[in-house]
Design a protein around this nucleic acid. Sequence first.
DNA 1: TGGCTGATGCGA
DNA 2: CGCATCAGCCAA
Length: 198
Amino acid sequence: MKLPREFYTRPNVVQIAQELLGKYLYTTIDGMLTGGMIVETEAYSGENDRACHAHLNRRTARTEIMYHEGGVAYVYLVYGIYNLFNIITNIEGRADAVLVRAIEPEIGLEEMLLRRDMQTIKPNLTAGPGVMSIALGITRKHYGEDLTGNTIWLEDKGITIPDEKIMTVPRIGIDYAGDDALLPWRFYVKGNKWVSRK
DNA sequence: TGGCTGATGCGA
DNA sequence: CGCATCAGCCAA
């Protein structure tokens, strides 16, 4: 079942980030279907989160989509190279987002290998937000894409990750955020080999 | 096996 | 100027 708008418009972005483990992320880009199960996410909580691009309700051309009603894509460039894919959540005006950091690849393996310029399937195919976007074909062209459409979408396939398999740890790469860098808002599936870091 | 570094574009 | 990254390098 495709995740409906109501999944994304709920207020608790940390809970949504956790619930997204075990959901499936799919793209149909350049005519190719690719995707797999989400195994790693991070929550970014709007105005009160120093690690969030919308901290203090900062509003620029880049962050504008974050204030949209939940269920759209926020894609931005980092380090001049990588397109990071985020899922916007909460109601209009509340700029929360979930960064999807890794999936367990399932479908479109050949296409993902081509996009990554890899010969064989290895864990780093989709482990990490930069390379995951490459494998799935996600770029800034998909900024604002409606996630209830047919280009990028998520599905619930009835899989629930048991609580004891969900690791809850601080987020990666946000040391500049002061105390907020300590918030345990990164979630991943314990023991899963497709997670970006141990 | 782990730490360091360069690549690279744009937002603030 | 520094970033929600990654791969390749080198020392050990």
